[in-house]
Amino acid sequence: MPVISAPHEFNVPDLFIDLKSVLGAQLYLKCEGFNFAGSIKLKAAVEMIARGELSGALRPGMTLVESSSGNLGVALSLVAASKGYRFICVTDSRCTLANRQRMENLGAQVRIITEPDEEGGLLGARIRHVEELCAGGEGFIWLNQYANLGNWMSHYRTTGPEIGAQFPDLDVLFIGAGTTGTLMGCARYFRENQPSVTVVAVDSVGSVTFGTPPGPRMIPGLGTSVRPQILDDSYVDDVVHVPETDTIRMCHRLVRHGFVLGGSTGTVLSGAQQWIAVNRPERDILGVAISPDLGDHYLDTVYQQKWLQDIYGLDRDELSEADELSAASRATA
């Protein structure tokens, strides 16, 4: 029986969903949303704060400041509340209402950026605001998830070994690319311990992370408008870019099977399906994909009919028809 004294001490390390009946491939989904922060970002938040404390850069009474599209902000809010730190999250207008409310209820101050930077987009504007905050007074510390080694080290120590222990014969691992902490930590782990595993990064169309042109992105989580400093392409075997409409279609396909998962998960699984169709059409593959969060963070966006219609012109009937066609295609394959 697990017994904890702080909320960040709890996490479910070994829950996987067999998606063969949904996607028609031997693909398992590692679910990372079952903790008190509701996402995989709790691992990075705990590691970065611990490293700050150990180095002496983070001391009692200081204020944490971080740029986040939502999930890391929630995770840092939780750990900060548990440890007695103040926390300011600098986010932007794409952050979901659910995540903003979670942060505020945990005692964080949320600042929303609405005007993008000319070159760095909304992310660049967020980072500039963080730098201005930290330069304006004593007692502020920016953990900087885009450059902090603790971001990827947390997954090198936990997520990678958790997958490796369950799947010693793993062929390919699909990982969403946001700040690239999960990607870099797992890729480094498997390069050193199971080098036969193919590591595929899944990114959003419009993200500049892997050198593709910038474009509008409305779903928070994956993708960047400024390349993360911790990214090392040499650890990545392949990259797939997914349009947001495909993300939404995958999320709604999953929910019709009873799995209410996050937008980032929809992106990762859409990318995995695309990669398998091109590279392993015979489906002789053992794959794992990482699900960063659950769908409750996206009830007012990805699963909200008006939002889908306003942003993408999609309606539920169209999404249902697409899923039925996909199911029929799998049945006759």
Rank of each mutant, 00 (worst) to 15 (best):
I17A: 03
A322R: 07
P2H: 14
L64H: 04
I163Q: 01
S207K: 06
R157Y: 09
I40Y: 01
Y189A: 02
G150M: 02
S329C: 08
W152A: 03
V239G: 13
Q101F: 12
C134A: 05
L183S: 03
N144I: 02
E104Y: 09
M48N: 10
S39D: 06
L78M: 14
F34R: 13
V255Q: 13
E53F: 02
I113G: 00
D232M: 10
G176D: 00
E162Y: 02
D296Q: 14
G124F: 00
P281F: 07
S329H: 13
G181T: 12
L299A: 11
Y28R: 09
C134W: 12
R51L: 15
M62C: 11
V278C: 08
H241W: 12
T267L: 13
G164D: 14
A45M: 04
G70N: 10
A289P: 08
T267F: 01
A165C: 12
T224H: 00
M184G: 10
V255E: 11
E9K: 10
G271I: 11
G120R: 03
P195V: 09
V208W: 08
I112V: 15
R217V: 12
Y156H: 13
Q309W: 12
P13G: 09
K83S: 09
T91I: 04
C89G: 09
Q273T: 13
V200Q: 08
A75P: 00
A147F: 05
A125G: 07
R283Q: 07
T179Q: 10
L231N: 09
V255Y: 02
D238M: 06
E115Q: 13
K43I: 03
S270W: 05
Y189I: 06
I163K: 06
D117S: 12
T198K: 15
G271M: 08
G215V: 09
I17M: 02
T301M: 13
R94G: 06
A277Y: 04
K43Y: 03
